[in-house]
Amino acid sequence: MTKLETTLATLLADIGTFYEPKKWHFLTVNGIDLGEGKIELQWIFSKYGVKDEIVIYYALSDYETPVPSLVSLIPSAFMGEREIVDMFGLKVDGAERGLYLDEDSLQHPLRSES
């Protein structure tokens, strides 16, 4: 497991140079609430056919900063992005709310304050 730090601003460039569709399998986008409005976002990749090769790009952010969308690079990323939009109430361009949550559900449940 390799953890690589990145920032939201350089995310697209970083992953664009890193990601090759036939080599890397994109797992998902993950968010971890660190408390006090801070959030750690992770983009997780694994390598086809190689044992225990996992690469996690992570970036520290807050609730308000818009998160760039990876859909242009990885078409299947929209599911994960919609999920973090729902679960953390983040803003990702092109990702709508409402994947899981209804209007009267608990909003952004995975934030630490909820």
Binding site: Y48, K51, S76
Partner: peptide, 22 residues
């Protein structure tokens, strides 16, 4: 490859991926 299919779907398409060997 593009849509990151996995498991039996991917193997049916010829994409050799299985977590059991990874």
């Amino acid at each position: 490859y593009t849509y990151n299919a996995l498991g039996p779907l991917a193997r049916a398409a010829g994409l050799a991926t299985d977590v059991r060997v990874e």
